[in-house]
């Protein structure tokens, strides 16, 4: 049988999107009352839940804490039921550890950590359903959770993935497109200042194509920013209405 046609002649992808279109985004803030901040985000079929605690006292050894800055502690885990085949080891495997490290790097760049020396901010992200773009959904969910917790941030962090197929740059890859084996770029962007917090590329890509792919990812992040902004403002309005201000 022929393989799946990821990009048709008319420019439609497998699920009917065009090359630069994002998947449907749904997000809710403040879903978890117990935590300082929480958010639930769905990007297509990828569902991520982020929970933030902090800033609170340093747990663990004080030796690891950076001087005069808050310690950002991230943990990324995937539920055993999140993938098509049940995952055996949800925590502690290499991929999760790498993702956690990436999240930590991303948020250390975005949070104003100098305001909270000698304290710790915990970010826990759990992927409930994985359908491509796991890291990006995790970053977006964590951003919303941090906003919900009221921890001062420099700017939103919007993340999106991009790929390259048949001379066209695709934005927001789903699982089938990622598994096809082409180059994948994950970009975490601070949209206002256009600062890149994290850029990750795996598989080889010729230098000539890089600007186009980067461009597609940047555009996608900007669209995401607009969507997340809308969610946040609605949440603020609802919260204010609830408190009767």
């Amino acid at each position: 049988m022929a393989g799946l046609e990821l990009l048709s002649e008319q420019g439609f992808r497998l699920d009917g999107r065009r090359a630069g279109e994002l998947r449907q985004l749904r997000a809710r803030m403040g879903v978890f009352a117990q935590a300082d901040g929480s958010a639930y985000l769905e990007q297509g079929n990828t569902k991520a839940l982020a929970v933030v605690y902090g800033p609170h006292e340093l747990r663990g050894s004080r030796g690891k804490a950076p001087h005069a800055q808050a310690l950002v502690n991230c943990q990324y885990s995937m539920a055993t039921f999140s993938t098509a085949e049940r995952k055996r080891r949800p925590h502690g495997d290499r991929a999760s550890a790498e993702m956690s490290l990436h999240l930590k790097q991303t948020f250390e760049a975005a949070l104003l950590t100098r305001l909270f020396p000698r304290s710790q901010i915990d970010i826990y992200v759990q992927i409930l359903q994985a359908d491509g773009g796991n890291y990006c959904a995790a970053v977006n969910a964590a951003t919303l959770a941090l906003l919900d917790a009221g921890i001062p941030m420099r700017d939103y962090v919007c993340a999106c993935s991009a790929g390259f197929l048949e001379d066209t740059a695709l934005a927001d890859l789903n699982y089938v497109e990622e598994a096809a084996g082409g180059p994948q770029l994950a970009l975490a962007l601070l949209p206002q200042a256009q600062h890149i917090a994290l850029l990750e590329l795996n598989a080889r890509l010729h230098q000539d194509h890089l600007p186009r792919v980067l461009d597609a990812a940047t555009q996608a992040c900007r669209h995401l920013h607009a969507l997340l902004d809308r969610v946040v403002r609605e949440h603020l309005r609802d919260a204010a209405a609830l408190l009767g201000k």
């Binding site: 906003l147 420099r154 939103y156 601070l190 206002q192 403002r233 309005r237």
Partner: peptide
Amino acid sequence: MAPARYCVPGERL
């Protein structure tokens, strides 16, 4: 009270 103006992180005030 006047309608509150909401702002988000990264917004230039």
